[in-house]
């Protein structure tokens, strides 16, 4: 066994295996989106999801590429939603609240 063969078998081969395993471990984790952890600040825009209306086809909504339910605008842009519902306010409200 020459010196080159020895180096190949005892140094390069283990290193290659090590690098392959390291790659397999590290690469899939890189692309993961930041996950919510309790106690973290929440600096995303508010989102507001409404259900699909019963009349509209459920499948047609998926076809347009948007996975989520139709989003209402919650911020200042939601003025039209405000004026659209001047009727009964639905009072008295029930419900519950919770913290974690």
């Amino acid at each position: 066994m020459t010196v080159v063969e020895t180096i190949l078998v005892y140094a390069v081969a283990p290193l290659a295996v090590f690098l392959l395993l390291a790659l397999l471990t590290l690469v899939p984790g890189r692309r993961r989106r930041p996950r919510y952890k309790p106690g973290q600040p929440w600096d995303h825009e508010p989102v507001w999801y409404a259900p699909h209306e019963a009349g509209s086809g459920h499948d047609s909504a998926h076809a347009d590429g948007h996975g989520g339910a139709r989003a209402l605008t919650a911020g200042h842009g939601g003025a039209h939603a405000l004026t659209a519902a001047p009727q009964a306010t639905g009072r008295p409200h029930g419900g519950a609240r919770g913290t974690w």
């Binding site: 995303h44 508010p46 999801y49 409404a50 259900p51 699909h52 019963a54 339910a69």
Partner: peptide, 22 residues
């Protein structure tokens, strides 16, 4: 989320909306 919102609204006849934000 879409499935849960739509199906629960359709099952019950109530209108469930979901707000996530401050």
């Amino acid at each position: 989320l879409d499935e849960a919102l739509t199906m629960s609204s359709r099952e019950t006849g109530l209108r469930f909306t979901l707000y996530i934000g401050d």
